[in-house]
């Protein structure tokens, strides 16, 4: 259990650094802004209690907000994603509740499961984030395009990061 906590703390720090120093600077015609820090919420263990999930989402969002100067924006979106996560896990597919050694990762659940799970969470998160940022529906389709393009790239990067982490763990 302690190992899991330690692992998640390290992951939290690394993902935030990656987000703030690298991904916040990526740009493609104004449409592309991947938010890979959501991977932290994606990879929390299955049996994380609901209140902890929400609290961690809140803290993650708040930290990103602090570094982007957007109080509340990422917090609201990440809490929303955290709230949706259990329902999405139920939707995408059951996992064996008795088997607590499994995590919502590509290695444990397979690529297909992870991609569908990650896509939905990421899309919800990005949609909440972008519509809240624009704060009106007057630019509905332009914002939707932004949500879709950013989501695609976030999922792509999330999978890449996943593979990097996994290969490291197997080598050890």
């Amino acid at each position: 259990m302690n190992r899991v906590v330690f692992q998640n703390v390290i992951r939290f720090v690394l993902l935030l650094l990656l987000q703030v120093l690298l991904f916040n600077k990526i740009n493609l015609y104004g449409y592309l802004n991947p938010f890979v820090y959501i991977l932290f919420i994606l990879l929390l263990p299955f049996e994380t209690p609901g209140w902890l999930l929400l609290a961690l989402s809140f803290i993650t969002g708040l930290t990103v907000d602090l570094f982007s100067g957007t109080p509340g924006l990422h917090t609201a979106a990440t809490v929303f994603a955290g709230f949706a996560r259990p329902a999405i896990i139920r939707l995408v597919g059951k996992h064996d509740e008795s088997d607590s050694s499994k995590f919502p990762t590509i290695r444990d659940m397979g690529l297909k499961w992870f991609v569908s799970y990650a896509s939905i969470v990421v899309f919800l998160h990005h949609a909440a984030l972008n519509y809240l940022d624009v704060f009106s529906f007057t630019e509905f389709f332009r914002t939707l395009l932004r949500v879709i393009v950013s989501s695609l790239f976030t999922v792509l990067f999330v999978i890449l990061i996943e593979y990097i982490f996994v290969s490291h763990r197997e080598k050890r």
């Binding site: 929400l54 509340g72 809240l132």
Partner: peptide
């Protein structure tokens, strides 16, 4: 508690956002 906590945290976040 899950739903309630969500509503509370979301309200805090959105208040922060709207005020700024």
């Amino acid at each position: 508690h899950f739903l309630l906590l969500f509503v509370v945290l979301e309200a805090v976040a959105i208040t922060m956002f709207v005020n700024s």
